[in-house]
Simulated assay, not measured.
Amino acid sequence: MKKFIIPLMLMLSVPFFSQISVGTNSQDNNRWTFGGGIGVGFGSQSTFYLQASPRVGYRLTDDLEVGIVGSVSWQTSDYYRSTMFGVGPFANYYFARSFYVGANLQHYFINFKDRYYDYKVNEEETALYLGGGYMQRIGNNSFMQIGLMYNVLWKEDTSVFSSGLIPNIGFVVGL
């Protein structure tokens, strides 16, 4: 059941998730970027989901950015409660100012409690997300990103996630 509920809540919160990187124009000497995202979800059986993912990056070139991203999520319902923390490096390559490809390695620490069966799980899982997508300019140096990422380390029988495919929608400022 946990393999179904946790990823379902992650997928339902995608429309509410946004990623904002605040940086400087390419002409400036400051290449640091800061940002993050937030997700909120609601569902049946008093389900509530809250997620935040701060990040800090450094533009090695105008098109290549590397950094560290963290994530924390909290989910609760009438039947379960879970928390999940993740941290790891990321890299994004932007080309033609309309497309991007990226990689994100996350190591997750998962705490899950089923209230109905009094079942508890403390697990760790590593995910390597690879993917890319389209970027649409929405401002001077602001872009909306729409893409897909796939966890190449995902295994159906052992993962706490129900799928390796993750759609993403985000906003980036400062590219």
Rank of each mutant, 00 (worst) to 15 (best):
Y100H: 09
N92Q: 14
Y150G: 04
V172D: 08
N122V: 12
V72W: 15
Y116W: 11
V172L: 09
I146K: 09
G39Y: 04
Y93Q: 09
F17A: 07
G37I: 01
Y119E: 15
T83K: 13
D157S: 09
S77D: 13
G174M: 06
A91Y: 08
I6Y: 03
F171G: 07
L105M: 11
D118Q: 14
N122K: 15
M1E: 12
N141E: 11
K113S: 14
V121G: 01
V66F: 12
G41A: 07
L128N: 06
F4L: 13
R55N: 15
L130Q: 01
S26Q: 07
F161I: 00
G23Y: 04
L64T: 06
S162F: 10
Y119T: 10
R55V: 09
G37D: 02
G67I: 07
V152D: 00
G132R: 13
I166A: 06
N168G: 05
S13P: 02
I110F: 02
T47S: 12
F90E: 10
L153C: 02
S46P: 00
K113M: 08
Q75D: 15
M9W: 11
E125S: 03
I5C: 01
A127I: 01
G174S: 08
I20P: 00
G57R: 09
P7L: 05
N141F: 02
W154K: 04
A103G: 15
L10Y: 08
F16R: 02
L148T: 10
I169A: 05
R137M: 05
V172P: 00
F171I: 13
G132V: 05
S18L: 12
P167R: 09
V22A: 07
